[in-house]
Write a protein that binds this DNA or RNA. Structure first.
Lengths: 161, 161
DNA sequence: GTCCTTGCAAAAGGTTTGCACCAGG
DNA sequence: CCTGGTGCAAACCTTTTGCAAGGAC
C-alpha cells in the first residue's frame, strides 16, 4: 500500500502536480476501500475523518485529477452518481463489474475477458480501442439462494427503487 | 416502422398503459433517430416539433416507462446525461457501443460479442446474467485518418471539455 | 365518478465554478 | 512575489416530484 502511494506520488510529480495532504488523504481512502466503488460523497465523508477541514469540491477536483492521470476510473452504474474505482497496479484498462439487481452489490472481475472481443472489434470495425467499460447486470450468488433476499448489506449505497 | 409502433402499443396495453399522443410522439422520435443516442433533452426538443404542448417531465416519464418495459435501454457514456437507446426488434439485451474520444461520435455493434464471455462469467462467478453494458472508448476510423480531426459532426451532442 | 396521464413549477440531488485566501518555492 | 491548491458558497444541470386539471371509459 505504501509502495502504491509512492508510485502515485511519482505519477503526480511527473505531471508537476503536488501530493498535498488533501490529495494524499483522498488516495489513502481509495486504497483502503479498493473494492467498494465509492461515490464522491462517500469518499468525502471518509476523507473527512482523516482531514476534517477538507471541502467536497477538493475531493471532486482530486478525483477528476486522478481520473485524468488514469489512476482511477470514473464509472457509472446508472444510479445517478459517479463512482471512482482505483485501477489495479499496472493495469491499462478498467476492470469489469457484476452488479446485482436484487441487493445492489457490486463485485469485480479483474481478469481481462475481452482480449478476443477487442481484437475482433479492432479488425472488423476498424476502431482503435483505448479502454472499455463492461458491466453485467444480474443476480449474485447470495440472492440466487435466498430467493427473496434484498436485505443484504449492499456494497452499492442504495439501489434506486 | 409502423409495425414497430404497433408492437410497442401492444406491449404498453399488455401492461395496461395507454399509448397517448405524447407517448406516441416520443416513440416516433426514438424510431426516427434510432442511431442517435438521444438524451432526454434531445428527445424533448424533437418531440416538441410534433407536439409543442408537451412537457419535459412527460418525456422523462415516458422514457422511464419505456425503459421499464425494456423497449429502450438507458445508457450512460459518462458525460453527465442519460441517453436512451431503442432496442432492436426482439433483442433481449443491450447492444454494444463504440465511443470516439476525439469527435465524440457513437456507433453501435448489434452483433452479440459476449456469448462466450457470459458463459464463462455465469460458470466461474456463479452470477446469473440478465443484461450487460459494453462500451469501447477509442478512436474511430475517421479520426484515425484525419489525425487532428475534432471538427467532425458528432453523433454525441457535446463531449464535455 | 374514477383512474390514469399531463403540464407546470418547484424541489432535489450531484457536480462545477468563482473568488478570496493560503502556502511553498 | 507568483503560482498552484484549497474551502466556502453560489451556481448549474439534469432529473424527480407535488399538485391541480384534463380525458377516457
Amino acid at each position: 500500500m505504501k509502495e502504491r502511494m509512492d508510485q502515485i506520488k511519482k505519477e503526480l510529480h511527473a505531471q508537476s502536480y503536488k501530493l498535498t495532504p488533501q490529495r494524499e488523504a483522498t488516495v489513502e481512502v481509495l486504497l483502503e476501500n479498493e473494492e467498494d466503488h465509492l461515490s464522491a460523497e462517500d469518499v468525502y465523508l471518509l476523507v473527512k475523518e482523516k482531514a476534517p477541514e477538507i471541502g467536497l469540491a477538493t475531493v471532486y477536483r482530486t478525483l477528476e485529477l486522478l481520473n485524468e492521470l488514469e489512476i482511477v476510473d470514473k464509472i457509472n452504474f446508472g444510479d445517478g452518481v459517479s463512482r471512482y474505482d482505483l485501477r489495479k497496479e499496472g493495469a491499462d484498462h478498467s476492470h469489469h463489474h457484476l452488479v446485482c439487481i436484487h441487493c445492489g452489490s457490486v463485485s469485480e472481475i479483474e481478469e481481462d475477458l475481452l482480449g478476443d472481443v477487442e481484437k475482433k472489434v479492432e479488425r472488423d470495425w476498424a476502431f482503435k480501442i483505448k479502454d472499455h467499460r463492461l458491466t453485467f447486470h444480474g443476480v449474485c450468488v447470495n440472492c440466487q439462494t435466498e430467493h427473496e433476499a434484498s436485505d443484504e448489506a449492499p456494497t452499492l449505497k442504495a439501489a434506486h427503487p
